[in-house]
Amino acid sequence: METLTHNIQAIPLNHYILLSSIIFSIGVIGVLIRRNAIVIFMSVELMLNSVNLLLAAFSVYRGDATGQVFVFFIMALAAAEVAVGLAIIVMIYRNTNSIDINVLNRLKW
């Protein structure tokens, strides 16, 4: 197991940063181009996960376990956020019979 992880980990730190930023910008694009509220929520989850991966990679790079503790806190926060957000979406659907976010433009003014 140790030889396995030693063989695998000669990856430059840059590649982890690039992977995380690519997935984060995919999440940003998903928030911008979709109108379904649930898909927008899933794009937010994608962004949270890319940040988690980057924190874990930096934690291993620095040899400091604090980054992984922060990932644990982010996961707890994501669980709370998803529960409240999906409850809000269900309530919106009950009131407007749609989860299109453009229906909610009455919040604009």
Binding site: T5, H6, Q9, P12, L13, Y16, A57, V60, G63, Q68
Partner: peptide
């Protein structure tokens, strides 16, 4: 490179 120095880090 990202090298794992302490094997029981995570």
């Amino acid at each position: 490179p990202v090298v794992l120095n302490d094997p029981n880090l995570g």
